[in-house]
């Protein structure tokens, strides 16, 4: 009886050594954008599967739109309860604000929950972090699925507003050159706020599930999403000006309802007192959104890097908590 000859292991072609037999340092550098794109697409697909594959599409659709639609109905009933001459005008204001807010909640929660899901529930966070993929890119990919769900909710809310609640939307009068850049800027900003919340959730415990909604709820107050900022004290209105989401919502409102009420301006507002005009001009909105959005995005990236570094330092990436 003779022993079998040992079989030499062969590496897959992409992982093999160079012909000269040594170590190729280029392999540790990755392939730049190609790798980033691949990580992002894989994470986005994973995020979508996690979000959507638990049920059939119809039930998933109902669940996805119930939340933003209910929020809108709460405000619509509040307006109806009080009544008054400006009811119809204010209804359009609120429907647009709450529809856009579906993006905000989905975008913020998507990234933060991806951290909590992977750390506390699936316990994969540490493996994702040590993989060759860029962690932030993976998180962005995971968050995209939720933003898509939020977009669906926003579209349905707006449709119900127009078809059932009498919101006067005229597709022919939409200011597309304003709408497209502010939507793009707004979405980038939402993702940036989501990254900030993800940075917070890396540091905190399992009960942080409710933090994104709490943060979104607080931003609700200062962004003029459902009421004009002019009812707030002047210093709080200024805080609203520093929030890019305020300019995003104002820009979308102006693009969709050019003659509708302003969330930032209006009679007696700090903006009117400061500028002498009742509402900001479209170019002012775009510039303000860009300026504040860039600041928030930079803060988010720096904050995330610091948080990740601290988490590695203190061993938080594989902690599980509970109460």
């Amino acid at each position: 009886m003779t022993a079998d000859a040992p079989v030499a292991p062969t590496a897959p072609p992409a992982l093999g050594s160079p012909e000269w037999g040594g170590f190729d340092p280029a392999r540790t550098r990755g392939r730049g954008l190609r790798d980033l794109r691949r990580s992002f697409m894989t994470a986005a697909r994973l995020g979508w599967q996690t979000e959507a594959n638990w049920t059939d599409p119809i039930l998933f659709f109902i669940y996805s739109v119930a939340k933003p639609l209910s929020t809108t109905l709460i405000f619509v009933v509040m307006i109806e309860v009080i009544g008054g001459a400006s009811t119809r005008e204010f209804r359009g204001f609120v429907v647009v604000g709450t529809a856009l807010w579906a993006f905000v909640i989905a975008g913020i929660a998507g990234l933060a929950w991806a951290v909590l899901d992977d750390r506390e529930r699936y316990r994969m966070l540490k493996y994702v972090v040590v993989s060759p993929s860029d962690f932030l890119t993976v998180l962005l990919g995971r968050g995209v699925a939720r933003i898509a769900v939020g977009g669906m909710g926003a579209a349905i809310t707006l449709s119900v507003g127009v078809l059932a609640l009498g919101v006067p939307l005229d597709a022919g009068r939409i200011d597309w050159p304003l709408l497209l850049p502010v939507m793009l800027g707004g979405l980038v900003t939402i993702v940036a706020v989501g990254i900030l919340l993800a940075a917070v959730c890396i540091q905190t415990r399992q009960e942080s599930w409710s933090y994104p909604e709490a943060a979104a709820g607080a931003l609700f107050l200062v962004t003029g999403a459902v009421f004009p900022l002019s009812v707030l004290p002047a210093p709080v209105q200024v805080v609203g000006w520093l929030t890019p989401l305020t300019w995003w919502i104002e820009g979308v409102r102006l693009a969709v309802f050019p003659a509708g009420p302003s969330g930032i301006g209006g009679t007696g507002s700090a903006f009117a007192a400061f500028s002498g005009r009742v509402r900001p001009e479209p170019h002012e909105i775009v510039v303000a959104l860009l300026g504040t959005g860039v600041l928030v995005t930079l803060a988010a990236i720096v904050g995330f890097r610091v948080s990740l570094h601290r988490a590695k330092d203190r061993g938080l990436l594989d902690q599980t908590t509970g109460s």
Binding site: M78, I79, G84, Y211, A214, A215, A218, F220, L221, F227
Partner: peptide, 23 residues
């Protein structure tokens, strides 16, 4: 911060909706 201050601000948002409507 997250479970007391922020929810208080959310409640405040609803208060200001009623104030805007002069309820």
């Amino acid at each position: 911060f997250f479970e007391i201050l922020l929810p208080f601000l959310t409640t405040s948002a609803f208060v200001f909706v009623y104030r805007a409507l002069q309820a």
